[in-house]
Amino acid sequence: MKMGKLINEEGLRVDGRRVDELRPIKIEVGILKNADGSAYIEMGKNKIVVAVYGPKEVHPKHMSLPDKCLLRCRYHMSPFSTDVRKNPAPSRREIEISKVVKEALESALILYDYPRTAIEIYMEVLQSDGGSRCAAITAASVALSDAGINMRDLVVACAVGKADGMIILDPNDIEDKEGEADMPLAIMPNLNQLTLLQIEGKFTKEEFEKAFNLALEGCRKIHHIQKKALMLKYFGKVEE
């Protein structure tokens, strides 16, 4: 096999990981005092704070839905989160991510329990790396359960990519930019349902299947970390 610049002869990636290895992940729950629910995630070099407010009254009032809750989502990158200063105004990319994250979380929430109200999710990227939308979804679902909003399941997201013709789990920034393909996906692990699937680049059918299964495996590992973080905050211990 031809060895490229992203994976070396020993099969290790630019940051020294194996192809099926996740970056180190840290999740903290309830870090913001004034939010109804909050979480902080570090996933590799990603550092994201998520705040959840609500359910609360909808403003402007005409936007309220008579039968269910209005979900609002904002994914935002701080000006200092990237190598070169980013304009703080929401970019096309951020607006799109806000939308897909909203849709990924919406299917897990039981919005019909809170008619005529709104839930607002703010995701602020303090430092960015590859796969920040996945980290944001993972942290947002933890923050939502911290806020005590009825949900069918936690949502956990993970990306897979293709670099040098190999399927890699959880691509970082360099692999994301230099690699051939990128596929973020989000699942509800206990219900075994998919809530987000995007693909950038090309996968063959076999590659897709391999990548999909690898991502599911990654999601389950992250779900375990999510669970541990919540247990630690609420019960002071981890139950196996």
């Binding site: 359960s145 009825n150 949900m151 069918r152 399941d153 206990n190 609420y234 139950e239």
Partner: peptide, 8 residues
């Protein structure tokens, strides 16, 4: 039993 959302 201690549970979180989605626990069976």
């Amino acid at each position: 039993k201690y549970v979180i959302p989605g626990d069976l």
